[in-house]
């Protein structure tokens, strides 16, 4: 099996896995970074969202062989930058989480939105977060948290 050099949350990690292994499984099974969740496995729910070269990416359907040298940021590392920290703080402030299973993906999508659109409209939020499903229906609190984070970002 091939060996891959990965840049995850600013650290170099090495894994030897089958080339078809989805990035999600590498994170969870090989690197034991279990903050990123398995939801649907077909890119339909957003629970597995990570950032790949800054793009919110569904890690369940990206084979490790397609990652290359692009930097990966997961929920474990998202608090390292100002936008990520603001979003996490807002999530706590608004008490967004219910069961919490989808929330790492929600936060990763929210950070991608705010990095691109620091002052999002309702439509921006609706469209950008529209692919992240929450079984507990915490959507109103997610919206409020995103607005709160946006207000905190300079």
């Amino acid at each position: 099996m091939p060996t891959y050099q990965l840049n995850i949350n600013g650290e170099r990690r090495e894994v030897t896995v089958d080339s078809s292994t989805p990035l999600l499984w590498v994170l969870r099974e090989d690197l034991k970074m279990t903050g990123t969740k398995f939801g649907c496995g077909i890119s339909a729910c957003g629970a597995c969202t990570v950032h790949l070269a800054g793009i919110a990416t569904r890690s369940c359907i990206v084979p490790i062989s397609h990652v290359g040298d692009r930097p990966i940021v997961t929920i474990e590392g998202i608090g390292q930058d100002a936008v990520g920290r603001a979003v996490q703080d807002a999530w706590v402030e608004k008490d967004v989480v219910q069961c919490g299973y989808c929330q790492s993906g929600q936060i990763m999508a929210a950070v991608a939105l705010l990095k691109h659109t620091p002052k999002p409209t309702e439509k921006n939020i609706e469209e950008s977060m529209g692919g992240n499903i929450c079984r507990c229906a915490t959507y109103p609190r997610i919206r409020e948290a995103i607005k709160s984070a946006a207000a905190q970002i300079k």
Partner: peptide, 11 residues
């Protein structure tokens, strides 16, 4: 859009 970019799935 930012949270749902084509390149987020289509490599």
């Amino acid at each position: 859009v930012p949270g749902l970019n084509c390149a987020g799935c289509h490599q």
